[in-house]
Protein backbone atom coordinates (compact mmCIF):
# COMPACT_ATOMS: atom_id res chain seq x y z
CA UNK A 1 0.00 0.00 0.00
CA UNK A 2 1.55 3.32 -0.95
CA UNK A 3 1.20 6.35 1.25
CA UNK A 4 -0.70 9.34 0.00
CA UNK A 5 1.48 11.97 1.61
CA UNK A 6 0.52 15.12 -0.20
CA UNK A 7 3.06 17.91 -0.15
CA UNK A 8 1.79 20.94 1.68
CA UNK A 9 1.34 24.04 -0.46
CA UNK A 10 1.18 27.54 0.91
CA UNK A 11 -0.22 30.85 -0.27
CA UNK A 12 2.79 32.89 0.75
CA UNK A 13 6.56 32.80 0.77
CA UNK A 14 9.45 34.49 2.51
CA UNK A 15 10.89 37.66 1.09
CA UNK A 16 14.40 37.54 -0.27
CA UNK A 17 16.71 40.04 1.36
CA UNK A 18 20.05 40.88 -0.21
CA UNK A 19 22.88 41.45 2.26
CA UNK A 20 26.03 43.24 1.23
CA UNK A 21 26.50 45.61 -1.69
CA UNK A 22 29.17 47.91 -3.04
CA UNK A 23 32.48 46.25 -2.28
CA UNK A 24 30.77 43.21 -0.64
CA UNK A 25 30.21 39.82 -2.19
CA UNK A 26 26.43 39.87 -1.84
CA UNK A 27 24.46 37.13 -0.13
CA UNK A 28 20.73 36.61 -0.20
CA UNK A 29 18.62 35.08 2.54
CA UNK A 30 15.03 33.91 2.55
CA UNK A 31 12.78 33.17 -0.40
CA UNK A 32 11.58 29.77 0.77
CA UNK A 33 7.97 28.79 0.17
CA UNK A 34 7.59 26.10 2.82
CA UNK A 35 8.25 25.24 6.43
CA UNK A 36 11.89 25.38 7.49
CA UNK A 37 14.05 22.58 6.04
CA UNK A 38 11.03 20.96 4.35
CA UNK A 39 12.99 20.56 1.14
CA UNK A 40 10.92 17.51 0.32
CA UNK A 41 7.92 19.61 -0.54
CA UNK A 42 9.01 23.19 -1.05
CA UNK A 43 11.64 25.27 -2.77
CA UNK A 44 14.39 27.12 -0.93
CA UNK A 45 16.51 29.24 -3.22
CA UNK A 46 18.95 30.18 -0.44
CA UNK A 47 20.38 28.16 2.39
CA UNK A 48 20.59 29.51 5.94
CA UNK A 49 23.60 31.78 6.41
CA UNK A 50 26.16 31.18 9.17
CA UNK A 51 27.87 34.18 10.70
CA UNK A 52 30.52 34.70 13.36
CA UNK A 53 30.60 37.49 15.88
CA UNK A 54 33.65 39.75 16.15
CA UNK A 55 34.05 42.62 18.59
CA UNK A 56 35.60 46.04 18.54
CA UNK A 57 37.20 45.66 21.96
CA UNK A 58 38.44 42.65 23.86
CA UNK A 59 35.33 40.81 25.07
CA UNK A 60 36.66 40.20 28.54
CA UNK A 61 33.59 38.27 29.61
CA UNK A 62 33.84 35.60 26.93
CA UNK A 63 34.66 32.29 28.58
CA UNK A 64 38.14 30.90 27.95
CA UNK A 65 37.06 28.06 25.66
CA UNK A 66 35.48 30.60 23.30
CA UNK A 67 38.40 33.02 23.46
CA UNK A 68 40.88 30.31 22.67
CA UNK A 69 40.28 29.94 18.88
CA UNK A 70 40.33 33.75 18.61
CA UNK A 71 43.52 34.18 20.50
CA UNK A 72 45.63 37.03 19.28
CA UNK A 73 42.83 38.78 17.41
CA UNK A 74 40.29 39.53 20.12
CA UNK A 75 39.49 43.23 20.08
CA UNK A 76 41.24 43.62 16.70
CA UNK A 77 38.30 43.64 14.34
CA UNK A 78 40.12 43.56 11.01
CA UNK A 79 42.32 40.65 12.01
CA UNK A 80 39.46 38.81 13.65
CA UNK A 81 37.47 39.32 10.48
CA UNK A 82 40.17 37.77 8.35
CA UNK A 83 40.49 34.76 10.61
CA UNK A 84 36.73 34.35 10.75
CA UNK A 85 36.38 34.25 6.99
CA UNK A 86 39.57 32.54 5.88
CA UNK A 87 40.11 30.01 8.63
CA UNK A 88 36.68 29.53 10.07
CA UNK A 89 34.60 29.83 6.91
CA UNK A 90 32.00 32.34 8.07
CA UNK A 91 29.54 33.38 5.35
CA UNK A 92 28.97 36.72 7.03
CA UNK A 93 30.20 38.62 10.08
CA UNK A 94 28.46 40.44 12.90
CA UNK A 95 30.58 43.32 14.13
CA UNK A 96 29.58 43.92 17.72
CA UNK A 97 30.44 47.47 18.76
CA UNK A 98 30.28 46.69 22.47
CA UNK A 99 33.11 49.17 23.11
CA UNK A 100 30.85 52.08 22.27
CA UNK A 101 28.75 51.43 25.37
CA UNK A 102 29.29 54.20 27.92
CA UNK A 103 30.27 51.67 30.58
CA UNK A 104 32.55 49.63 28.38
CA UNK A 105 34.90 52.11 26.83
CA UNK A 106 32.50 54.68 25.45
CA UNK A 107 34.13 54.62 22.04
CA UNK A 108 32.88 57.36 19.77
CA UNK A 109 30.84 57.03 16.62
CA UNK A 110 33.94 58.07 14.70
CA UNK A 111 36.00 55.29 16.21
CA UNK A 112 33.21 52.83 15.47
CA UNK A 113 33.10 53.95 11.86
CA UNK A 114 36.87 53.55 11.62
CA UNK A 115 36.59 50.00 12.94
CA UNK A 116 33.99 49.22 10.32
CA UNK A 117 36.18 50.70 7.69
CA UNK A 118 39.01 48.41 8.70
CA UNK A 119 36.76 45.37 8.54
CA UNK A 120 35.44 46.36 5.14
CA UNK A 121 39.01 46.55 3.92
CA UNK A 122 39.94 43.20 5.45
CA UNK A 123 37.18 40.96 4.10
CA UNK A 124 34.49 41.06 1.45
CA UNK A 125 31.66 39.21 3.16
CA UNK A 126 28.49 41.12 4.10
CA UNK A 127 28.31 42.57 7.60
CA UNK A 128 25.77 43.06 10.36
CA UNK A 129 26.60 45.93 12.70
CA UNK A 130 25.38 45.63 16.28
CA UNK A 131 25.33 48.71 18.48
CA UNK A 132 25.82 48.99 22.23
CA UNK A 133 22.13 48.56 23.07
CA UNK A 134 19.00 50.68 22.78
CA UNK A 135 19.33 54.38 23.34
CA UNK A 136 20.75 57.59 22.01
CA UNK A 137 24.32 56.32 21.84
CA UNK A 138 23.30 53.43 19.64
CA UNK A 139 21.49 55.71 17.23
CA UNK A 140 24.46 58.04 17.03
CA UNK A 141 26.92 55.21 16.46
CA UNK A 142 24.87 53.37 13.87
CA UNK A 143 23.96 56.56 12.05
CA UNK A 144 27.59 57.46 11.71
CA UNK A 145 28.56 53.98 10.60
CA UNK A 146 25.68 53.95 8.14
CA UNK A 147 26.81 57.20 6.60
CA UNK A 148 30.50 56.38 6.38
CA UNK A 149 29.79 52.94 4.96
CA UNK A 150 27.03 54.00 2.64
CA UNK A 151 26.33 51.71 -0.25
CA UNK A 152 27.84 48.65 1.46
CA UNK A 153 24.47 47.10 2.29
CA UNK A 154 25.19 46.61 6.00
CA UNK A 155 22.48 45.24 8.26
CA UNK A 156 21.92 47.67 11.15
CA UNK A 157 21.01 46.08 14.48
CA UNK A 158 18.54 47.14 15.68
CA UNK A 159 15.31 49.13 15.55
CA UNK A 160 12.43 48.59 18.00
CA UNK A 161 8.83 49.74 18.26
CA UNK A 162 9.84 52.46 20.68
CA UNK A 163 12.80 53.68 18.67
CA UNK A 164 12.83 53.08 14.95
CA UNK A 165 12.62 56.40 13.20
CA UNK A 166 16.32 57.30 13.29
CA UNK A 167 17.56 53.97 12.04
CA UNK A 168 14.82 53.70 9.45
CA UNK A 169 15.89 57.03 8.03
CA UNK A 170 19.59 56.21 7.84
CA UNK A 171 18.97 52.71 6.50
CA UNK A 172 16.92 54.13 3.65
CA UNK A 173 19.20 57.08 3.05
CA UNK A 174 22.42 55.10 2.91
CA UNK A 175 21.24 51.88 1.32
CA UNK A 176 21.40 49.50 4.27
CA UNK A 177 19.25 46.68 5.60
CA UNK A 178 17.43 47.16 8.89
CA UNK A 179 17.05 44.55 11.62
CA UNK A 180 13.81 44.96 13.55
CA UNK A 181 13.93 43.62 17.08
CA UNK A 182 10.91 42.58 19.13
CA UNK A 183 10.65 40.89 22.55
CA UNK A 184 9.62 37.34 21.62
CA UNK A 185 6.14 38.37 20.55
CA UNK A 186 4.52 37.78 17.17
CA UNK A 187 2.25 40.79 17.38
CA UNK A 188 5.02 43.16 18.33
CA UNK A 189 7.21 41.84 15.50
CA UNK A 190 4.38 42.50 13.10
CA UNK A 191 3.67 45.93 14.58
CA UNK A 192 7.28 46.96 14.07
CA UNK A 193 7.21 45.92 10.44
CA UNK A 194 3.96 47.81 9.92
CA UNK A 195 5.46 50.93 11.50
CA UNK A 196 8.53 50.57 9.28
CA UNK A 197 6.43 50.10 6.18
CA UNK A 198 4.36 53.15 7.16
CA UNK A 199 7.59 55.17 7.18
CA UNK A 200 8.41 53.95 3.68
CA UNK A 201 11.00 51.36 4.59
CA UNK A 202 11.00 48.62 1.97
CA UNK A 203 10.29 45.38 3.81
CA UNK A 204 12.49 43.59 1.31
CA UNK A 205 15.29 45.33 3.18
CA UNK A 206 14.26 44.22 6.66
CA UNK A 207 15.20 41.25 8.84
CA UNK A 208 13.29 40.14 11.92
CA UNK A 209 15.16 39.50 15.17
CA UNK A 210 12.54 37.98 17.44
CA UNK A 211 15.05 37.86 20.32
CA UNK A 212 16.72 34.57 20.95
CA UNK A 213 16.34 32.77 24.21
CA UNK A 214 19.30 30.47 24.66
CA UNK A 215 18.92 26.78 25.45
CA UNK A 216 17.48 26.57 28.93
CA UNK A 217 16.77 30.28 29.06
CA UNK A 218 13.73 30.85 26.93
CA UNK A 219 14.65 28.84 23.83
CA UNK A 220 11.18 27.38 23.52
CA UNK A 221 9.59 30.79 23.49
CA UNK A 222 11.74 31.93 20.60
CA UNK A 223 11.12 28.59 18.91
CA UNK A 224 7.34 28.85 19.02
CA UNK A 225 7.24 32.52 18.14
CA UNK A 226 9.39 31.76 15.11
CA UNK A 227 7.18 28.86 14.05
CA UNK A 228 4.15 31.13 14.33
CA UNK A 229 5.88 33.85 12.31
CA UNK A 230 6.73 31.34 9.58
CA UNK A 231 3.16 30.05 9.50
CA UNK A 232 1.81 33.59 9.22
CA UNK A 233 4.27 34.32 6.41
CA UNK A 234 3.33 31.18 4.53
CA UNK A 235 -0.31 32.03 5.08
CA UNK A 236 0.25 35.22 3.13
CA UNK A 237 0.93 37.81 5.82
CA UNK A 238 3.15 40.32 4.04
CA UNK A 239 4.08 42.02 7.30
CA UNK A 240 5.66 38.92 8.79
CA UNK A 241 7.50 37.30 5.92
CA UNK A 242 10.89 38.90 6.42
CA UNK A 243 13.73 36.44 7.06
CA UNK A 244 14.67 35.85 10.67
CA UNK A 245 18.11 36.41 12.22
CA UNK A 246 19.10 34.82 15.54
CA UNK A 247 22.01 35.99 17.67
CA UNK A 248 22.69 32.52 19.01
CA UNK A 249 26.26 32.91 20.23
CA UNK A 250 25.57 35.76 22.60
CA UNK A 251 22.58 34.06 24.15
CA UNK A 252 23.81 30.49 24.29
CA UNK A 253 27.08 31.42 25.97
CA UNK A 254 25.27 33.34 28.71
CA UNK A 255 24.12 30.04 30.18
CA UNK A 256 26.03 28.91 33.19
CA UNK A 257 25.69 25.40 31.81
CA UNK A 258 27.85 26.49 28.89
CA UNK A 259 30.55 27.94 31.10
CA UNK A 260 30.92 26.15 34.40
CA UNK A 261 33.91 23.84 34.45
CA UNK A 262 33.75 20.14 35.30
CA UNK A 263 35.67 20.52 38.51
CA UNK A 264 32.77 22.50 39.88
CA UNK A 265 30.13 20.20 38.43
CA UNK A 266 31.61 16.80 37.67
CA UNK A 267 28.37 15.37 36.36
CA UNK A 268 28.23 18.08 33.71
CA UNK A 269 31.16 16.75 31.72
CA UNK A 270 33.78 18.67 29.78
CA UNK A 271 33.06 22.40 29.62
CA UNK A 272 34.62 22.82 26.21
CA UNK A 273 32.41 20.22 24.54
CA UNK A 274 29.40 21.18 26.60
CA UNK A 275 29.61 24.83 25.60
CA UNK A 276 29.84 23.99 21.93
CA UNK A 277 26.96 21.56 22.27
CA UNK A 278 24.99 24.31 23.98
CA UNK A 279 25.56 26.69 21.08
CA UNK A 280 24.95 24.04 18.42
CA UNK A 281 21.74 22.79 20.02
CA UNK A 282 20.42 26.35 20.29
CA UNK A 283 21.29 27.09 16.68
CA UNK A 284 19.95 23.86 15.13
CA UNK A 285 16.71 24.12 17.09
CA UNK A 286 16.17 27.64 15.85
CA UNK A 287 17.08 26.78 12.28
CA UNK A 288 14.39 24.13 12.46
CA UNK A 289 12.01 26.87 13.54
CA UNK A 290 12.96 29.17 10.69
CA UNK A 291 16.20 31.05 11.37
CA UNK A 292 17.64 32.09 8.02
CA UNK A 293 20.71 33.70 9.52
CA UNK A 294 22.48 32.53 12.65
CA UNK A 295 25.31 34.36 14.46
CA UNK A 296 27.73 32.17 16.41
CA UNK A 297 30.84 32.63 18.53
CA UNK A 298 32.73 29.37 18.46
CA UNK A 299 34.10 28.39 15.05
CA UNK A 300 33.67 24.70 15.82
CA UNK A 301 29.94 25.29 16.24
CA UNK A 302 29.89 26.84 12.81
CA UNK A 303 31.69 23.87 11.27
CA UNK A 304 29.31 21.38 12.81
CA UNK A 305 26.21 23.32 11.75
CA UNK A 306 27.50 23.79 8.23
CA UNK A 307 27.96 20.04 7.96
CA UNK A 308 24.40 19.52 9.06
CA UNK A 309 23.04 22.03 6.57
CA UNK A 310 25.05 20.48 3.76
CA UNK A 311 22.77 17.48 4.08
CA UNK A 312 19.83 19.61 3.02
CA UNK A 313 21.47 22.05 0.73
CA UNK A 314 24.70 20.51 -0.48
CA UNK A 315 26.38 23.27 -2.43
CA UNK A 316 24.61 26.37 -3.71
CA UNK A 317 21.78 25.00 -5.71
CA UNK A 318 18.00 25.05 -5.62
CA UNK A 319 15.99 22.22 -4.20
CA UNK A 320 12.63 21.36 -5.50
CA UNK A 321 9.95 18.81 -5.18
CA UNK A 322 11.07 16.03 -7.49
CA UNK A 323 13.83 15.15 -5.10
CA UNK A 324 13.42 12.56 -2.44
CA UNK A 325 10.54 10.70 -4.01
CA UNK A 326 12.59 7.64 -3.18
CA UNK A 327 11.69 7.79 0.47
CA UNK A 328 8.07 7.28 -0.45
CA UNK A 329 8.55 4.44 -2.85
CA UNK A 330 8.64 0.75 -2.12
CA UNK A 331 11.67 0.10 -4.22
CA UNK A 332 14.54 1.84 -2.50
CA UNK A 333 17.74 0.10 -1.66
CA UNK A 334 17.54 -0.42 2.05
CA UNK A 335 18.98 1.66 4.78
CA UNK A 336 21.93 1.80 7.06
CA UNK A 337 21.52 1.98 10.75
CA UNK A 338 22.58 5.20 12.25
CA UNK A 339 24.19 3.69 15.29
CA UNK A 340 27.75 4.57 16.03
CA UNK A 341 29.94 2.92 18.58
CA UNK A 342 27.76 2.14 21.56
CA UNK A 343 28.84 3.53 24.86
CA UNK A 344 31.04 1.51 27.14
Amino acid sequence: MSLDLKPKKWAGALREVALGAGSRQPLTVGGGNGLPLHTFEAAFPHRPVLALEITDVDPARWVESVRQPWEGVLGRPAEAARRAVREFGADLLLVHLMGTHPDRGNRSPEQAAADLGAVLEAVSVPLIVKGPGAGQKQNAVLARVAEDCHGEGLALHSATNEDYKTLAAVAVAYGHVLVGESPIDVNIAKQLNILLADTSVDLNRVLIDPLTGGLGYGLEYSYSVMERIRLAALGGDAMLNCPIVCLVGEEAWKAKEAKVTADKEPLWGSQRERGIHWEVATAMTLIEAGAELVVLRHPESLTRIRQQLDSWFGSERSHDREEVASLNSTTSQGRETSGGAPCR
Partner: peptide, 10 residues
Protein backbone atom coordinates in the same frame (compact mmCIF):
# COMPACT_ATOMS: atom_id res chain seq x y z
CA UNK B 1 25.65 6.28 22.63
CA UNK B 2 27.40 9.28 24.20
CA UNK B 3 27.52 9.06 27.95
CA UNK B 4 29.07 12.29 29.14
CA UNK B 5 27.30 15.15 30.85
CA UNK B 6 28.42 17.41 28.02
CA UNK B 7 25.91 15.61 25.77
CA UNK B 8 23.24 14.70 28.28
CA UNK B 9 22.82 18.06 29.98
CA UNK B 10 22.05 20.00 26.79
Amino acid sequence: ADCGGETWLP
